[in-house]
Every structure is written in structure tokens, then in C-alpha cells.
Design a protein around this nucleic acid. Structure first.
Lengths: 131, 131, 131, 131
DNA sequence: GTGGTCTAGACCACT
DNA sequence: GTGGTCTAGACCACT
């Protein structure tokens, strides 16, 4: 499982892990009911304390991205409807804060959409390649 | 000066103040070279610790939004070119994080633009109304 | 023997088995002195580790629900008076925790009884139908 | 603030704290916007590790019982509608598990209601006394 | 092997 | 002073 944490990122490590795995699940990169690396395994792989991984996994379970059972491990929740809706809400909330402030400062709507197009249409370093 | 801080907001108070004043300056609500309330004055008005206000003002000065004259207080920087460019950079950086993740999760570009339009075109509770 | 375990259920698997078999015995679905599937048999049928089944059977024996004959397997205890009393105690203990907390939070007695009626009078997906 | 943890209780310490504070808030024992003891303070008072208290407080904030801000502390959420609805759901969920099993084992509805009445109408060691 | 809880202690940002 | 994050390490229940 490819997960990188960025030390220059202001978000705490566990939030970066939450974001990374959430995106992998919602993008289908991780399959329904697939088992993900154990807390200890990922902790070893990423050289991070197990408590930090556990904190991230717990949040992913609360967000209906994963489900788990002690003694068995963590698995991808096959029913992602709720998580998907929450993701869209999260995106919307971020955009509201960002766009309202931008608007107030005189950044035109057209400029914002231009930026969106530019971001969306470029390849994206980790994005899926299309055939 | 109308500045409201939201105690439920997860952003620290000083960041909320920085954001609020930055937006007021870049939107022209505060005029070039206009003096803004003193640290003590604003601290009293908002019932906030003066250290918190001072921290916000210091950051605004570093961002070329305000300038200070020792013993006389803080004033709006009349040369906002740099600050304006930084604001656009900041908006762009936020949009990159948000949009790349949204894209990966399968949220379509059209949906994002739809949300932007919706946010931008509504009145906005605290937004300036144009004559 | 129809026993379903729910991997999403937060109760450990062996507890789910204990609960399921206990209910089947106390409801008369399993007859006095009837032999139940061997540990290995049930482990195979349910695709569960034999240790887990063995743990459940051991607890059922301690609770006087089953008895075992070395080398011959597990059987339904025909004398269920003790187990029945323990079940009522267990129900009562759960209700005390739940109802006292509900009461403290202002949930009215009438509302609780209403919920009980609703639960009790509906068919229950896995409940036995009476002829 | 009166909060006792019971070592014989099977629930983990942090869950007992969550339950205790939730009940105090939903019963009105703690007032809207009232500040509750700091993580460190309660940790000292109860002789429990601060991390354990912090875990409980975090869950209470996620449940809309409390709100917080780093540097200021935790406060009782004045808008408890959501939390109250969740509490009723929680009670209902517990009752379903308990009552369905009891029913299956032949415990009569009248007996269950009798138990509820008995629990509800007795004083309750920590219950509010009525004038 | 798996996750969950808890303690102890450090360090940081914010007020 | 406040909470938030992270590490380290122990111990437990469950599979």
C-alpha cells in the first residue's frame, strides 16, 4: 500500500494517513472487504508509532471507511454511500471557506474556475493513468 | 471595525483575526494608510487577551498587510500588490489540496464548478453588497 | 443448526456464538440432551477457528447450558432452571444500566415502555414463528 | 464535578467517563457553555492518566456533548438536540438487543415492563431528589 | 498473529 | 495556564 507522509505538510501525521487511505478507498484503489495492513505492520513500514496508526484507523472506522474486529484486523467497508456523501460535504465546506474569502478579496469567479480547471486537468503526480 | 470571531471554529483565534483583517484590507473595506484599532483597544472590544491580538497584528505586518509605526500603532499598507499575489497563492494552494483529493475520489469537475458557482453567486451573510 | 455471526458486530465472535446457542437452548429450539455439532464440525461449517468455538462451548458449559461427555461431544443440559434464572439476571442487569442512564437524561418511562412494546410485538427477523 | 469510575465495571475507563459526563450534560447537571475541568485537572483529581481523559473528552466532542478550543478548554454544548436524539437511539439499540434475546428465551413482555417500572421508580443512588 | 486500553512523558501551539 | 500530537512500552482480550 503506497502511503507517504509529508513532513512539510502542516496536518498531523495521523490526519495525513486518514486522508490518504480515505482517498484510496473512495477511489476504488482498495477493494471492498479487502484487508488493509495491520496497525503494527503499517507502523513498521512507515516507521511511525503504532498508536498514531491506531488513531488514524479509529477515525477511518468512525467515518465508515473501514470496519474492524479485534483479533482480525481492518477491512474496507463495502458500503461507501455514507462516506462518499461525507466526502462531498467536506469538499464543499473547504470550498466555502476558501471561495468566500477569495471573493471578498476581489478574486473573480472566472479566475477561480480557471484554477480549478488547471488543477483538475493536469495529470496529478499520483493520479491514475488512463489507457 | 466589524470583526467577529467564532469560538466554535477550530482555527485559532489569532488566525481568525488575521483572516478577517486581511479580507477587510484586500477588499478595500479598510483604506490605505488608515489606522486600525490599537492592540489594547481591539482586545477590550472583543474581550480577548491582548497577546492574541498582538500575535495577529505581527503576522499581518509580516504579510505586508499592515505596517506599524513605533508608539503610534498599526496602519493599512497602501501597497498591496505583494499581499494580493500571496492571497491568490494561498487560495490556489488550498484548492490544489482540496480538488486533487476530490478528483481522486471521483467527484467530477462539473460538480466542483457547480459548487463554486453556488457559493460565489449567493449573497454571503457577511459579504459586501454592491450598490 | 442455524447460527449466524455478524463480522460487523462489535461483540467478539465467541460471545455471539454463546448468545446464539444460549437463546436456542432456552427457547427450546434445541431439545434436552440433544447433541450439538462438534467443535470441529461447527468450525468448518462457520469457517471459524476451532479455538473460538471451543471457547464458546466452554463458557456454555460453565453456564449450565451444555454439558460435555469426554470424547463424545456436547449436549443440551435438560435442567435449565439455573440457566434460566441467570438469563433473567443478565437481562435485568443490562436494563438497570440502560434505564437508569436514560432516566437521568430525561427519557420518560412511558417512552421506554413504548419502545419495549414496539420491539416485543414486531415479528423479529430471526424470531421463531408460532404455529 | 462528581464522577466515579468503577473498577468492576467491564467498560474501559474512558467509556465510563464518557457515559458519566454525557449523563451529567443531558440531565442539565452541567449548564450550557459551562466550562468543565481541564484534562489535566480531572486527570489529577481522578488519579488517571491525562491521555485517558483526553480520549474521553474527544469522544464527547465528536458526540456534540462538548465543544473545545486548544488553549481555552472544554465547554458544555448549549445545542443538545442532536446529542439527545443520539442518546435515545443508543438506548433503543441496547433495548433491541436485550429484549429480542429475552423474548426468544421466553421472558414475557409483562415481566420486562415490571422490571423497567421497578428500576425507574426507585430512587437511584445518584438520582436527583424531587422536592 | 490481531486491535484496544492505559500509563508515562515529551514537545508544540494557543490563550 | 489550555488542548493536541507523538513516542515508547506494557498488558489484555480475541482469533
Amino acid at each position: 500500500m503506497l502511503l507517504t507522509i509529508n513532513l512539510r505538510d502542516k496536518r498531523p501525521i495521523y490526519k495525513q494517513i486518514v486522508g490518504g487511505i480515505k482517498d484510496m478507498v473512495l477511489s476504488g484503489e482498495l477493494k471492498p472487504d479487502e484487508q488493509i495492513p495491520s496497525v503494527r505492520q503499517l507502523a513498521t513500514d512507515m516507521n511511525i508509532n503504532p498508536n498514531t496508526i491506531a488513531k488514524a484507523y479509529a477515525e477511518l472506522e468512525r467515518s465508515d471507511i473501514l470496519y474492524s474486529a479485534a483479533g482480525r484486523g481492518f477491512f474496507v467497508n463495502p458500503d461507501l454511500a455514507k462516506a462518499y456523501r461525507a466526502k462531498e460535504e467536506e469538499v464543499k465546506k473547504t470550498l466555502i471557506l476558501c471561495v468566500e474569502s477569495a471573493k471578498k478579496c476581489g478574486i473573480k469567479k472566472e479566475r477561480i474556475i480557471e484554477i480549478i480547471e488547471e488543477i483538475y486537468d493536469r495529470d496529478g503526480s499520483q493520479a491514475e493513468t488512463e489507457p
